[in-house]
């Protein structure tokens, strides 16, 4: 499905700020895999997703999607195959455009855009239908500019946009981190729902270790541009957040002393 072979990216090569963000990284995803990615600040998590999305090209290595070599494909062409949600809720939507216009833009992801009407009746009814699933009442505010929505609403909308035109691959980069905990939780469960529904192959970066084990079917941990832990199945089910921390220290030889790695207790037991 997705395959990275010896992916390497060095920023600011040959300068004092030289940074090896990805180092000979190998990763293979099966169709339908929902992989969560954890790792300390600067580990290369965002860089990994950016490399797959094609924000820039790799220095070395190859990327294959569905058997096609996409290593040198420009980002806007890859975007037809890849849905993305960013950490900043402002980045995923066009503020001056209406809710339905934003979704209409997403409906054309991966297709050529011509002089046909951007929103026709059938698209509008599908937009309404999809929006009503969010339970935010947005289906009654189709012509509201997105700029008037809250961060959580915008992020939910971005998620819907990323999956509106079923992508081959969904990339989520800490997409709940900028939201308040309750909204973040809602957006996360919406994520699970949308991914499960279409069996989307997904990569989700999170800084919440509990979420990383709870959501998806596989967890990888990154450190200094490499994957230092890759667990799934039974091994993953039995793993506790404390185990993950211990493993990280062993694999990286460092403490995961990082305020961004939250060790939140399972919220369900918390809330009860």
């Amino acid at each position: 499905m997705l395959q990275l072979k010896k992916a390497t990216k060095v920023f600011n090569r040959d300068s004092v700020n030289e940074k090896r963000a990805l180092h000979q990284l190998d990763l293979q995803l099966a169709a339908g895999d929902f992989v969560t990615i954890i790792g300390s600040k600067g580990a290369g998590k965002s860089t990994l997703l950016n490399a797959i999305a094609g924000l820039w090209f790799l220095d070395e290595g190859k990327i294959y999607l569905d058997g096609t070599d996409i290593t040198n494909m420009p980002d806007y062409k890859r975007a037809g195959l890849i849905g993305r949600v960013f950490q900043d809720p402002m980045v995923g939507t066009a503020a001056s455009m209406t809710i339905e216009e934003n979704l209409a833009l997403a409906a054309k992801r991966g297709h050529s855009r011509g002089l046909k009407k951007g929103i026709n009746k059938s698209l509008r009814s599908r937009i309404k239908e999809e929006l009503s699933r969010l339970g935010l009442g947005l289906e009654d505010r189709l012509s509201t500019p997105v700029g008037l929505l809250s961060g959580g609403q915008r992020q939910a909308l971005t998620l819907l946009m990323a999956t509106f035109q079923q992508p081959r691959l969904l990339l989520l980069d800490e997409h709940t981190a900028a939201l308040d905990p309750k909204t973040g939780e809602k957006v996360l469960s919406l994520t699970e729902e949308l991914v499960a529904e279409s069996g989307l192959t997904t990569l989700m970066v999170t800084h919440n270790i509990v979420d990383s084990l709870k959501v998806g079917n596989r967890t990888i941990m990154m450190h200094e541009g490499q994957i230092v832990l890759d667990i799934k199945g039974k091994e993953r089910e039995e793993m506790t957040p404390q185990d993950v921390l211990r493993l990280f220290e062993r694999n990286s030889g460092k403490q995961l002393a990082n305020d961004r790695m939250l060790l939140v207790k399972n919220r369900k037991s918390n809330g009860a």
Binding site: P74, D75, Y76, A79, G80, I82, G92, A94, R109, M161
Partner: peptide, 9 residues
């Protein structure tokens, strides 16, 4: 950034 991620050149 957004419109790029939706596949527009």
């Amino acid at each position: 950034v957004m419109i790029k991620s939706l596949g527009v050149n």
